[in-house]
Simulated assay, not measured.
Amino acid sequence: MAIDKKENALCNITIIHEDILEKVKKEMTDDDILFNMAAVFKVLSDPTRLKIINALMLSEMCVCDISALLGMSQPAISHHLKSLRQTRLIKYRRDGKIAYYSLDDEHIKIMFDQCVTHVKE
């Protein structure tokens, strides 16, 4: 006989486990951090931005390079780069008139790799 998993997931009794609530309340992540995390996830919810992150994991690149790689206009790429910069996912350095973009730190690659692993499972 098949068991309806949705029905079994429901709690039929109203009992508050005060000890669990207190422990969890003390260990919950601060609201400001959660707000900033949500902003990062929102920026990463765009496939084009994920492609840019993926490309920058492999090499530092300028806007022209990214534009050619993704087959998009430079203004469109610049728009995406701005969002990625504002959430500190990428950074840039100037070399004369050219700005070269790279990941802000190693955590970005770890997040990307972890998500790829999760999706493949």
Rank of each mutant, 00 (worst) to 15 (best):
21 L>H: 02
70 L>K: 00
86 Q>V: 04
22 E>S: 12
10 L>N: 12
38 A>I: 01
69 L>M: 05
95 D>Y: 04
50 L>P: 03
40 V>M: 10
80 H>M: 01
9 A>I: 00
89 L>V: 04
86 Q>K: 14
111 M>C: 15
12 N>F: 06
115 C>R: 15
32 D>I: 14
22 E>W: 00
52 I>K: 02
94 R>G: 10
30 D>N: 10
24 V>C: 06
6 K>Q: 06
88 R>P: 00
59 S>R: 10
101 Y>E: 05
121 E>M: 15
50 L>N: 09
41 F>T: 15
49 R>K: 14
33 I>K: 06
31 D>H: 04
1 M>R: 09
11 C>Q: 09
31 D>R: 14
27 E>G: 02
64 C>G: 12
17 H>S: 07
55 A>Q: 06
76 A>V: 14
37 M>P: 09
90 I>N: 00
22 E>A: 09
96 G>A: 13
59 S>H: 10
98 I>M: 09
66 I>K: 00
82 K>W: 03
80 H>C: 03
20 I>K: 10
5 K>M: 11
8 N>W: 09
53 I>D: 05
120 K>Q: 14
80 H>L: 00
1 M>F: 03
94 R>S: 14
89 L>R: 01
1 M>T: 12
6 K>I: 13
29 T>H: 05
106 E>M: 11
49 R>M: 03
86 Q>A: 13
31 D>Y: 09
102 S>V: 07
82 K>E: 04
117 T>H: 07
95 D>P: 01
59 S>E: 13
17 H>D: 11
86 Q>M: 11
117 T>P: 08
119 V>P: 12
114 Q>Y: 11
50 L>T: 02
90 I>W: 01
53 I>L: 04
105 D>E: 15
74 Q>I: 11
34 L>F: 05
72 M>R: 02
26 K>L: 14
43 V>P: 01
78 S>Q: 06
19 D>A: 09
19 D>M: 07
106 E>K: 12
101 Y>G: 03
35 F>H: 08
60 E>Q: 08
20 I>G: 01
110 I>H: 07
79 H>S: 02
32 D>E: 15
31 D>Q: 11
68 A>R: 13
12 N>H: 06
4 D>M: 00
16 I>M: 08
113 D>T: 12
98 I>C: 07
98 I>N: 05
44 L>S: 05
56 L>T: 00
37 M>Y: 08
73 S>T: 03
80 H>K: 02
30 D>L: 06
